[in-house]
Write a protein that binds this DNA or RNA. Structure first.
Lengths: 113, 113
DNA sequence: CAGATATTTCGATCATATTGGAAATATGGA
DNA sequence: TCCATATTTCCAATATGATCGAAATATCTG
């Protein structure tokens, strides 16, 4: 993961509406959600949603596919892993002692995955 | 971690200069780095640096302490853990199967921590 | 083909963020 | 006290981003 990609992802997620969209897609899993359903669930205008989905898409955080009249968006888990890895790698380099607080998180993730 | 805090952190990190500052501080560890040294290392103007440190500070990603004439900045590892936890928790909720790619990352973190 | 649904694109306005120069504040040393 | 160093604050110019209505495009159905 390049630093520039990480900046793009972080700034894409650093927005109220887009973080909500991304969380929704992450929870939906690989099945994804149609743009219209996202708009209804989050109560946002279709054109605003489209613009925000475009930002997330350009940041490579989501992918899309057409199904009939709808366009289905899904979270890109590989990209998310890459971002987490980038931040974690950054954390562990040169200062292993600071990773202690991460133990709980890793444990939590371990319980899930 | 509230969603609003996460948005603040993510948008603070979603900036070229600020991500560079934060990475530098994370690598420096609890000892921290003086503002002037950060400015020289990253070759940025002192006022721009100050503004960016202020953003990171308001997002609770860094802390500062005065030492003589210098002000030493350090990364807040607790905040970083919280952010990673927020994203991971978000990932695991409702879709455990998508966590597979995270296995490698957890393993990597485990090797370090 | 005509109509309905789904989504995107366009265009304008408004708000917010970034940048850099210059001055102000705070600390330590002679 | 006076001066040098360190950092922040102030200010204005510029750039970027968000929002919304309206129109355009694409797909399905009758």
């Amino acid at each position: 993961m390049e630093s520039k990609s990480a900046v793009n992802m972080l700034s894409a997620l650093g927005h109220d509406g887009r973080l909500a969209i991304f969380r929704l897609l992450v929870k939906a899993g690989p099945v994804g959600i149609a743009a219209g359903d996202i708009a209804r669930t989050l109560d946002v205008l279709p054109n605003s949603l489209s613009a925000n989905l475009n930002v997330l898409s350009h940041a490579a955080l989501v992918t899309s596919r057409r199904e009939g009249r709808s366009i289905i968006y899904s979270a890109d888990y590989g990209a998310m892993s890459g971002l987490l890895g980038f931040l974690m790698e950054d954390c562990c380099n040169g200062a292993p002692e600071v990773c202690a607080p991460l133990g709980a998180i890793v444990a939590k993730a371990g319980a899930c995955c």
